[in-house]
Write a protein that binds this DNA or RNA. Structure first.
Length: 857
RNA sequence: GGGUGGUUAGCUCAGUGGUAGAGCGUCUCGUUUACACCGAGAAUGUCGGGGGUUCGAAACCCUCACCGCCCA
């Protein structure tokens, strides 16, 4: 063992990067699939290859690293598997933007060249987030780094596609899908974000005279594609119209009035226009009534096929023109502007989504989603916190078929080939299509491959050692915001592909990181923070501790730079406490002295350590990161630094501290182990320096030692703390400077009096003979003091009167209870006893304070 | 419209039946050799409103108000 000196101050930047590299080089992060140890597996929610580490990643990864490091220390074969997602639209957009700067589009390059270009971009500037994860200290197994477009993961995609197709869980159909007219691709429901936008609500009169009917719309241009008007079957206002036709203005098309129970008679006029090709609800109505699907908007959202003056206009231009033309014909009955309503936007480029009829590939989700729901319902998979389970059920139980085809070039190309005579075949891994067949030009939704992540990253479809050892994964840690995007899909595909074995045992959901006022971070608000800046400024440990400390299960957390500074202060505190220990000969060598040989102060800290260890471990293993952090923080700062070290200073100063040197050594050793998962860098530095050990990463996790629990010592130290606090308060009230030594002595029972010198040392009292001029009483303990000058009687009286008032109030509340017959009859004995004790104690206090007040006069 | 979470100290939040807590901030004193990224002391709450259950409610029930999120 080689002990080193501790630098005078802790500078995170000086140790973090080299320490991280050392960890990687030493193979501590690398999991062994042939190990006999029980596995513990986490797969990282793969960040986008285009992404940079934002504060949400920092939180997510801190929690995962925390669990991984703890489990590793607990003797598990811990695997935290890193990797990235190819992020179809996002990545394609990035590269297209680069091309646009040169005046090129992807079509100028052609498909093959463009995809090559994307790979080049990835090699050069993709995956920056991986380096940033290292700054955070993530103990991920870099030897297993995965990427959704890699060869093995692509094989997994082909395999499952074919398997789903063969079981008729993938089909091709003409449906209304969400279409982004800018990205020129279909989007799944979850790639659409709704916001309340300003629009217009225009009421239009169709038909004339008796066959007149008024409909309202926010998209007037869609009237060009109307093929019906629908009313509720029970709506008497329109009973006479059902089955008849009305004329659509401008294009003079006769369309039927149909009765459909899905029409809300209370909304507007109770009659709705039906545009089956451009609205999902209308499409459904169309199916029920055999209506024609008139496509009147093309891929760019320009009007087509109407044989009118509107052809060629884009949707907004046409909306205006259509309203103008209707107004000129006197067809506009009412206009509401602005009209606030929910509008869907492309989650990638924010363009307003256009519902569009088109031929796409779908996953039939009903059976898969059922299984995904059941796995949670029957308890095979737990959701933490369980309050979020209803959201999960709401989603999986009401999921629409999943549109998986995307009109992009970057992604897994759909393995379907079409023959010259309309044949359709799916080409699995290792197979090839017959000559003359052409492959479907579309690629798969990015989430299709992400849904395979928990097993594709372990080598599936091959039955690899990794897959055998590490599947199913233990926990999935992610934000509740992607419960639907990703988690539900992994559940569906995991259960399907892995013969009903769910991809993880527990889903741990955390919240979002918000700004210091609890507001959502957004670029437009300018309140977005950069975790890397915080790491530069305060160290990774400080950021990690702050995030863990703020992470209550499933709840959002506010984050302010001040809190991170506070965590940095905590790190400094640990550093300095260790320096103090080291300069006082504290050691981890030799056996811990038997408890019977220890003084109450040493017994007390061991007892507190044991309690803290148990509580903290329990909280961490139940994903209560905030509460765990709070517990360890107060143990380290309050119990250890503020009390134990202070109470022990007299022993160190007097050179009579052999037992304490060893006890403190033990406590620090254990504390560093406990803190290591959250604050890996500083604990590693302190521990290796202090103990001379090789690494804390594989050191054993502390066990709570019940033989150290000692309620008597805890009670005694609590008494000492009260005495010390009261004397300090008295000195403060009397204007005695903290550093000024004054004569003092304790008149107390033997167990307390035994620690007179320890108390005197930290109270700056000189024990000895003197004539007291003042005294402080705490229960049956008296501290006599010589202020060697005038006692500030007024200050003392004010203090005593305040204490008296408090005591009287406490006594009153206690007596109200004791005089309450209901309470005496029904409250449990222990509670009654407690109130009685309180009554006795406050009564004694009142007597004592009253006497003191009398003596002052 | 349907779900769902919240309302506790100046701010951000813990606290699932027995005298209201933390961090930060505020005020006072202090460079006592671990630490001023510190120490000591102090102040600060009709726990959103109303009703109910209970010996006892911040907590359980009902109701209202106001914020937020998810889904339509």
């Amino acid at each position: 063992m080689t002990k080193r000196e501790l630098a005078p101050t802790f500078v995170p930047a000086d140790i973090e990067p080299r320490m991280y590299q050392h960890w990687v080089d030493s193979g501590y992060f690398t999991a062994d699939s042939s190990s006999p140890k029980e596995p513990f597996t986490i797969v990282i929610p793969p960040p986008n290859v285009t992404g940079n580490l934002h504060i949400g990643h920092a939180l997510d990864q801190t929690l995962q690293d925390c669990l991984t490091r703890m489990k590793r220390m607990q003797g598990y074969e811990a695997l935290w598997l890193p990797g990235m997602d190819h992020a179809g639209i996002a990545t394609q957009n990035v590269v297209e933007k680069q091309l646009a700067a040169q005046g090129l589009t992807r079509h100028d390059l052609g498909r093959e060249e463009f995809v090559k270009k994307v790979w080049e971009w990835k090699a050069e500037s993709g995956g920056q987030i991986l380096g940033q994860m290292k700054r955070l200290g993530d103990s991920v197994d870099w030897t297993r780094e995965a990427f959704t477009m890699n060869e093995t993961l692509s094989q997994a995609v082909l395999t499952i596609f074919k398997k789903l197709y063969d079981q008729e869980l993938i089909y091709r159909a003409e449906r209304i899908i969400n279409w982004c007219p800018r990205c020129l691709t279909a989007l799944s429901d979850i790639e659409v974000e709704h916001s309340d936008d300003e629009g217009e609500l225009v009421s239009i009169r169709y038909g004339t005279g008796d066959s007149e009917i008024i409909v309202a719309t926010t998209r007037a241009e869609t009237m060009l594609g109307d093929t019906a008007v629908a009313v509720h079957p029970d709506d008497e206002r329109y009973a006479h119209m059902i089955g008849k036709t009305v004329t659509v203005p401008l294009i003079n098309r006769e369309i039927p009035v149909v009765a459909d129970a899905h029409v809300d008679p209370a909304f507007g006029t109770g009659a709705v226009k039906v545009t089956p090709a451009h609205d999902p609800n209308d499409f459904e109505i169309g199916l029920r009534h055999n209506l024609e699907n008139l496509v009147i908007l093309d891929a760019d959202a320009k009007v087509v096929n109407t044989n009118s003056a509107f052809d060629g206009m884009d949707r907004y231009e046409a909306r205006k023109a259509v309203v103008e033309a209707l107004r000129a014909e006197g067809r506009i009955v009412a206009e509401k502007r602005p009209y606030i309503h929910a509008v869907g936007h492309c989650s990638r480029c924010d363009t307003t989504v256009e519902p569009r009829l088109s031929k796409q590939w779908f996953v039939k989700v009903a059976p898969l989603a059922k299984a995904a729901g059941d796995a949670v319902r029957d308890g095979r998979v737990k959701i933490e916190p369980e309050e979020l389970a209803p959201r999960y059920f709401e989603w999986v139980d009401g999921m629409h078929d999943w549109c998986i085809s995307r009109q992009l070039w970057w992604g897994h190309r759909i393995p379907v080939w079409y023959g010259p005579n309309g044949e359709v075949i799916v080409v699995g891994p290792g197979e090839s299509a017959p000559a003359g067949y052409e492959q479907d030009p579309d690629v798969l939704d990015t989430w299709f491959s992400s849904a395979l992540w928990p097993f594709s990253t372990l080598g599936w479809p091959n039955n690899t050692e990794d897959l055998k050892k590490f599947y199913p994964t233990s926990v999935l840690v992610t934000g509740y915001d992607i419960l639907f995007f990703w988690v539900a899909r992994m559940m569906m595909f995991g259960l399907f592909a892995m013969d009903g074995v769910p991809p993880f045992g527990t889903i741990v959901l955390h919240g979002l990181v918000r700004d210091q006022f609890g507001k959502k971070m957004s670029k437009s608000k300018g309140n977005v923070v950069d975790p890397l800046e915080f790491i530069d400024k305060y160290g990774a440990d400080a950021l990690r501790f702050t995030l863990a400390r703020g992470s209550n299960p499933g709840k959002d957390q506010a984050l302010a730079e001040d809190w991170i500074a506070g965590s940095r202060n905590f790190a400094t505190k640990l550093w300095n406490a260790t320096r103090f220990a080291m300069m006082n000969g504290v050691t981890v060598e030799g056996d811990l002295p038997p408890v019977s040989a220890l003084n109450a102060i040493d017994k007390w800290i061991l007892s507190r350590l044991s309690e803290t260890t148990a509580e903290y471990s329990e909280l961490l293993s139940t994903y209560e990161f905030a509460r765990a952090s709070e517990v360890i923080y107060h143990f380290a700062w309050d119990d250890l630094c503020d009390w134990y070290l202070e109470l022990s200073k007299e022993a160190f100063a007097s050179g009579n501290a052999q037992a304490t040197q060893r006890v403190l050594g033990y406590v620090l050793d254990q504390l560093f182990r406990l803190l290591h998962p959250v604050m890996p860098f500083i604990t590693e530095e302190l521990w290796t320096t202090f103990t001379g050990g090789e690494t804390l990463m594989t050191a054993a996790w502390p066990a709570s030692n019940s033989s150290h629990l000692d309620k008597d010592s805890e009670e005694l130290i609590t008494q000492l703390q009260r005495v010390i606090t009261e004397v300090r308060r008295f000195r403060n009230d009397q204007g005695v400077k903290p550093s000024q030594k004054i004569p003092g002595r304790f008149i107390a029972p033997a167990d307390v009096a035994q620690y007179s010198s320890a108390m005197a040392f930290l109270l700056k009292l000189e024990l000895g003979d003197f004539t007291p001029s003042a005294s402080v009483e705490i229960g049956n303990i008296k501290c006599e003091l010589d202020l060697s000058g005038a006692v500030d009687v007024e200050a003392e009286r004010a203090r005593l009167e305040k204490d008296l008032a408090t005591a009287k109030k406490d006594l009153a509340t206690a007596e109200v209870k004791l005089n309450n017959q209901g309470f005496m009859a029904k409250a449990p004995e222990s509670v009654v006893a407690e109130i009685r004790e309180r009554q006795a104690a406050t009564t004694a206090d009142i007597e004592r304070i009253t006497a003191q007040l009398a003596a002052l006069k």
